[in-house]
Design a protein around this nucleic acid. Structure first.
Length: 516
DNA sequence: CGGTTTTGACCCGCGC
DNA sequence: GCGCGGGTCAAAACCG
C-alpha cells in the first residue's frame, strides 16, 4: 500500500464505483444541465461510451440516470448519444434516424427539432465550459492568494485558513491529511479535484456540490496538489498579478510545487535556451551517468518566483540540450516567456491528467483513438520508473514536422505508449490556462510553427505542438473527462485515468527543453 | 556596488 | 543505520 500508484488505482476504483452511486451522479449534474452528457464517464473515450451506454440502458429501468438529469432534459435517447457534448449533431442524426422512419416530413421536422435542441445543448455546454474556465482561474487566483497569506514552513503542510477560500481550501486540507509522499499520485488527482472545484464556482452558494467534490477527495495529497496547482498555473497567467504579493508569501510559493516536470529536448549549441525569462544559476552538479554537469537555475524575474529549471546536455548526444522546468511563475511574463509558460503548462496538464494510474490498456486505447486524428506529429508517452517526478518530455530533436514526441515519465512506470496530445491541448483551456493561439489558430496555421527550426522558435514549436488540436471534439472530450475525473466504466480501466489523462493540473511543471 | 556565477558543504530522500 | 545521489544553500569570486 505504500506504493503511491497503487493508491491511485484504488482511488480510481472507488471513483468508478462512484459513478454508479448517486453522489457521483450528482456530480454529473454539472453537465446534466445541458442534458447531454450526464454520464461523466462518457467523456473519457469513445470506446467507453459504448460500454457506458450499454450500462445506461440497463439502468434506465431503474431510473437512475433519470434522476441525474434533474434539469428535466426531455430526451433520454439524446442523452445516450450525446456523450461528449461535442459530436452532438452526429449523435443526434444517427439517433433520429431510427426514431423517425415513417413520414419524411415528420422525420424532417423531428430532425430539425432535435438539431435545434442539440445546438442549444451545445451552446450550453460551451457556456459551461467557459464558466468552468473562468471559475477555475478565479479559484486559482484565490487559492494562490490564500497560499501567499500563510507562511508554510518547508515541507510542512498547514491548514489554509483564508476565509475567502475556506471551502476550497478546507477541502484540500481534508484530503491532504498526512501522506506527503505520494506527490505523483496526487498530481493526478490534483487536476481532478481542482477541476471539480472549478466547476463548483459557486461553492459558497452550493454546498452540495462542494460536498460532493469533497467526497471525491479521496487522495490524501489532494491538498498538496491544489497547492501545487495554484502556483504552477500561474505560468503565463496575468491574473495572479492582481494578487497582492509580499515577501512572506515567497516561502509558501516555493513549498510544494514540484512534482510534475516538463522537459524539452532540443538541439542547441548555446549553454541555455532562451525562453524569455531571466534566470539565475544557483547550483551545478554532476549528475550520475552524465559527464556533463547539470545546472540549476531560478527565475529572477520576480522575487520569490518558484520556477526553477535544470539545464543539462544529453549524455548520449551532447548537441541535445535538455531543459527542465519546474513550478509556475507568480508574475507577469513577457510574450516569449508566456509562450513557454503556456507550453509547459499544457504539457504539465497533460502529464498530470494522465499520470493517474495510467493503465496500459487504457492508454493504448486512447492512443488509438487519438492517433487517428490528423495531428501532424506523433505523440508518445514514456513512463520511467527512474523518474522521481512525473515528467513529460517534449522532444524537439527530431523532425518537427512529424516527430513531436511527448514522453511522459511518471515514476514507477517503465512502459512506453502513445499519449494523446489532444488532452493536453484542451486541458489548459478548461483549466484556465489560456493557450490562446491554440484556441484561435486553426491547425493549419500551426503547421508553419512546427516546421520551424527548433532552435529558432522552439517555444512556438512546442506550444503549437501541444496546443494545436485538429480534433477539438476529441480534445475537449478528453479534457472534460479529465476535469470531471471521470473514471472509465470499463472494468479494467479502473485505474482511473484511462487513456485520457484525468485532469489537467498544472501544479508544478518541470519542463525539460533539450534544444538541438 | 549590485547582481551573477562558482563551488564546496549541507540537507534530504531513497535503497540496501 | 549507512551510503549514495539529487537538490539547495551560501560564502567567495567574478563581472559590468
Amino acid at each position: 500500500m505504500d506504493n503511491p500508484h497503487h493508491r491511485q488505482l484504488t482511488f480510481f476504483l472507488s471513483h468508478s464505483i462512484d459513478h454508479t452511486d448517486p453522489p457521483s451522479v450528482k456530480e454529473m449534474d454539472f453537465f446534466s444541465t445541458s442534458s447531454a452528457p450526464d454520464h461523466k464517464n462518457n467523456t473519457s473515450t469513445s470506446d467507453t461510451n459504448d460500454d457506458y451506454q450499454k450500462r445506461d440502458d440497463q439502468h434506465d429501468t431503474h431510473d437512475r440516470h433519470g434522476s441525474i438529469t434533474a434539469d428535466g432534459s426531455p430526451t433520454r435517447a439524446t442523452d445516450h448519444h450525446v456523450n461528449t457534448g461535442l459530436n452532438l449533431t452526429c449523435a443526434s442524426a444517427g439517433m433520429t434516424k431510427s426514431d423517425n422512419s415513417e413520414n419524411p416530413e415528420t422525420e424532417l421536422s423531428s430532425l430539425e427539432n432535435q438539431l435545434g435542441k442539440l445546438q442549444e445543448e451545445n451552446s450550453k455546454l460551451r457556456s459551461v465550459l467557459d464558466q468552468i474556465t473562468k471559475n477555475y482561474a478565479q479559484l486559482q487566483a484565490q487559492l494562490f492568494n490564500a497560499l501567499q497569506k500563510q507562511k508554510l514552513p518547508k515541507n510542512v503542510e498547514t491548514k489554509i485558513v483564508d476565509p475567502g477560500a475556506s471551502t476550497k481550501l478546507d477541502v484540500v486540507n481534508n484530503a491532504s491529511v498526512s501522506d506527503e509522499k505520494t506527490d505523483q499520485d496526487v498530481s493526478v488527482y490534483r487536476s481532478n479535484n481542482a477541476e471539480v472545484m472549478s466547476k463548483t464556482h459557486d461553492r459558497d452558494d452550493d454546498p452540495q456540490l462542494t460536498k460532493l467534490n469533497l467526497g471525491k477527495q479521496a487522495c490524501p495529497d489532494a491538498a498538496e496538489d491544489v497547492l501545487d496547482r495554484s502556483s504552477s498555473q500561474s505560468w503565463g497567467s496575468s491574473k495572479l498579478e492582481e494578487q497582492p504579493k509580499t515577501a512572506e508569501q515567497l516561502p509558501a510559493e516555493q513549498i510544494p510545487l514540484r512534482k510534475a516536470r516538463v522537459s524539452v529536448r532540443a538541439r542547441s549549441e548555446a549553454p541555455m535556451i532562451s525562453d524569455g525569462c531571466q534566470w539565475r544559476k544557483y547550483g551545478q552538479k554532476m549528475a550520475k551517468g552524465n559527464p556533463c554537469p547539470r545546472a540549476y537555475y531560478r527565475c529572477t524575474m520576480a522575487v520569490g518566483c518558484p520556477v526553477r529549471k535544470q539545464v543539462q546536455r544529453c549524455a548520449d548526444d551532447k548537441a541535445v540540450l535538455i531543459t527542465t522546468y519546474e513550478g509556475n511563475h507568480n508574475h507577469p511574463l513577457p510574450p516569449a516567456a508566456t509562450a513557454m509558460a503556456n507550453t509547459t503548462s499544457a504539457a504539465a496538464a497533460m502529464l498530470l491528467s494522465g499520470s493517474a494510474a495510467p493503465s496500459k490498456e487504457a492508454l493504448t486505447n486512447s492512443a488509438g483513438y487519438y492517433s487517428s486524428s490528423s495531428i501532424p506529429y506523433a505523440s508518445m508517452a514514456t513512463l520511467s520508473a527512474s523518474a522521481p517526478f512525473p515528467t513529460i518530455t517534449l522532444d524537439l530533436t527530431q523532425n518537427p514536422n512529424n516527430a513531436m514526441q511527448l514522453h511522459r515519465v511518471p515514476a514507477g512506470h517503465g512502459a512506453t505508449f502513445p499519449l494523446p496530445l489532444h488532452a493536453a491541448a484542451a486541458g489548459p483551456h478548461l483549466l484556465g490556462h489560456p493557450l490562446f493561439f491554440q484556441q484561435k489558430l486553426p491547425p493549419a496555421a500551426l503547421m508553419p510553427l512546427l516546421q520551424r527550426q527548433p532552435s529558432s522558435s522552439m517555444v512556438e514549436t512546442v506550444s503549437a505542438a501541444i496546443a494545436s488540436d485538429p480534433n477539438f471534439t476529441a480534445a475537449l472530450m478528453a479534457a472534460i473527462s479529465s476535469i470531471i475525473g471521470v473514471p472509465r466504466s470499463s472494468d479494467d480501466n479502473n485505474n482511473g485515468n484511462g487513456a485520457i489523462p484525468g485532469s489537467p493540473q498544472l501544479p508544478q511543471s518541470c519542463t525539460t527543453f533539450s534544444t538541438n
